Amino acid sequence: MSGVETLRAIVVDDEPLARRGLRLRLEQMADIEVVAESGNGRDALEKILELKPDVAFVDIQMPGVNGLQLVQLIPVDSLPHVVFVTAYDQYAVEAFEINAVDYVLKPIEEERLELALTRVREQRANADIANQREQLLEAVADLTKESPEVLEQKLVSGQFAGSAYPDKIAVKDAGKITLVPSSEIDWIDAAGDYMCVHARGETHVMRITMKELEQQLDPKLFQRIHRSTIVNLSRVREIRAHINGEYHLVLDSGECLKMSRSYKNKVQHFL
């Protein structure tokens, strides 16, 4: 196909047969070069950053890092044109169309696959590639309801490896990521839009909501005692009751934390 740009593609799907089927179809097209395939989001992220393909065919429903989360984790300057491969219902498909995100439904039809590639080429002909990528990220963020920052913290800390609660919390500051073992955290308190994570005498500051951080912590070990405070239960050495219905918790470090009345039912977790 003289004069037609060759598109470098990656196929991302956790089902080996699905990957093989799509790869065979793409390889039959003279202007498509499949440079890689991947069975999970974490591996796909590494390959996309390394190989920088032009287009990525991404299955949405994958264990660990799913297709929508994968797209959010890719930096905008490395984000290929994304064609979602999905078995989602019509409502999700409509959401993709509204946000100009392309898709092919499983089982994949030849005509629909060719249309998707035509749309990719049309987008590549548009000079405003950066803006298209930004729109894609915004569309995916609307669907997942999770920010790229939160997803990155989950990925780095190992939360997508299979455990419901990561062993380490990823604290990103000035381009550096510090992995703080959850077991070393004494308590956490809020300071405006930031969380202060107190561990082994050090304070780590991270931009995340209390709710998002709470979801990363095992409730068997961590409990919220105030709208702005989470405590490691194993660090509490003394509980002091006050006449106004509040409690004060004294930690091993000597730190004294206030438990508000609305959380006093949590006392049973310490006993």
Rank of each mutant, 00 (worst) to 15 (best):
V156W: 01
I188D: 03
E149I: 09
P166G: 01
H198F: 06
K220N: 13
E255G: 07
S163K: 15
Q216V: 02
E214L: 10
F222W: 06
A161S: 15
A164E: 14
M210N: 08
L179W: 01
C256W: 07
V250N: 09
L151V: 09
C256Q: 14
V236I: 11
I185L: 04
I169V: 10
D186R: 15
L155T: 01
L213N: 00
Y247T: 04
I188L: 09
A191R: 15
H248D: 12
S147H: 11
F160C: 02
R237Q: 14
R240P: 05
R237V: 13
E149P: 04
T144R: 12
M210Q: 04
E214F: 03
V150P: 03
P219G: 10
K168Q: 14
A199W: 00
Y194F: 10
I225F: 00
L249F: 03
L249K: 08
S253M: 06
S163T: 15
K168L: 07
V197H: 00
M210R: 09
F222M: 10
R224M: 00
H198W: 06
H242V: 00
I188Y: 05
A164I: 10
Y194A: 06
A174Y: 13
Q223M: 13
T144V: 11
N232E: 03
G175I: 02
A241C: 11
V150W: 07
R224E: 03
I239A: 14
C196N: 15
G158F: 08
S182W: 04
A199H: 01
E255R: 14
I177L: 00
S234W: 09
D193R: 14
Q215P: 08
I208E: 04
Y247V: 00
A191N: 12
I188N: 06
L155S: 04
T203K: 14
D173T: 07
K168Y: 12
E255I: 06
Q223W: 11
K168S: 08
G175S: 06
G245A: 00
D173H: 13
V250F: 03
R207Q: 08
K172E: 08
T209V: 07
M195E: 04
I169A: 04
I239T: 15
D189C: 09
Y165E: 06
H248R: 14
H242C: 07
P219E: 09
I169L: 10
P148Y: 05
Q153C: 07
R227Q: 12
T209E: 07
K176S: 07
E214R: 12
V180H: 00
P181E: 05
T178Q: 10
D186I: 04
D173Y: 09
S228F: 01
A241P: 14
M195Y: 02
E246K: 12
H204E: 07
L251I: 00
V231S: 04
I230R: 02
G192K: 07
I230A: 00
R207A: 02
S234M: 12
E255C: 07
K154M: 09
E184G: 03
I230F: 03
V250K: 14
F222V: 04
T229A: 06
R200H: 11
F160P: 01
L233E: 08
E184Y: 07
G254K: 08
L257H: 05
